[in-house]
Computed example of a mutant assay.
Amino acid sequence: MVGPFGTKDVETLKVKWVEKIDKFIIEGEKIENIFELDPDFAVMTNKRLIFLDKKIDIANVTGHELIFIKYDKIDSVAIEKLVGVFKFNKAVIYCGGHKHLIKFAKEEDTISFIKAISVKIN
């Protein structure tokens, strides 16, 4: 099934990511959309954006940081495209001087995400 912005049905994806998502949902918060990333997830609720950000430390060990951003704290969003590559599969979130890169598995999910987040931050 396809959800409101071209993503899979929210309930289908919620089942897949329930253990990671539900323990972070606060009172009065509702999941509105879930996007599959490469290889994790991004969640849009009625209050904030939640996603995994991969970081590499100096010992070349990959770590993860779960990011929570209120929509009113997002300065702008962009789509990143590598030169010579015809796929737009990375969204960039600019927030308080920080740049967060979100890599999607599919180009259409990147575009759907940008449309959905743009509505929230305007």
Rank of each mutant, 00 (worst) to 15 (best):
L49R: 11
D53H: 12
N33S: 12
F51K: 07
H98Q: 11
T45V: 11
E29V: 07
K99R: 15
P4R: 11
N122W: 06
Y71S: 08
D53L: 09
K115E: 11
K73H: 08
M44Q: 14
I114E: 06
F35Y: 15
V18L: 11
F35N: 09
I21L: 13
F113C: 08
H64P: 00
G97L: 10
C95N: 07
H98D: 09
I31F: 04
L52S: 09
N89R: 14
T7A: 14
V85G: 01
V2D: 09
A116G: 00
S112K: 00
K99A: 04
A116I: 00
L66A: 04
I34M: 07
E80Y: 14
K8T: 06
G63V: 07
H100W: 14
K73P: 00
K30R: 14
F51Q: 05
K90C: 05
G28K: 06
L49Q: 10
F5W: 15
L52Y: 02
K103S: 10
K90L: 02
D9I: 01
A105Q: 11
K115T: 12
D57P: 02
I79R: 09
I121L: 12
K87N: 05
E107Q: 14
V61W: 00
F41A: 12
A59F: 12
S112R: 05
K8I: 05
I69R: 01
K90E: 10
D109E: 02
T45I: 08
K8M: 12
S112V: 02
A42D: 03
I121D: 10
K73E: 09
D75G: 10
D57Y: 02
I69F: 00
L37Y: 05
M1D: 07
K16E: 14
K81F: 00
E11L: 13
P39S: 13
D75W: 05
V2F: 07
I93C: 02
F88H: 11
I74W: 03
V10R: 13
K87V: 12
G97K: 08
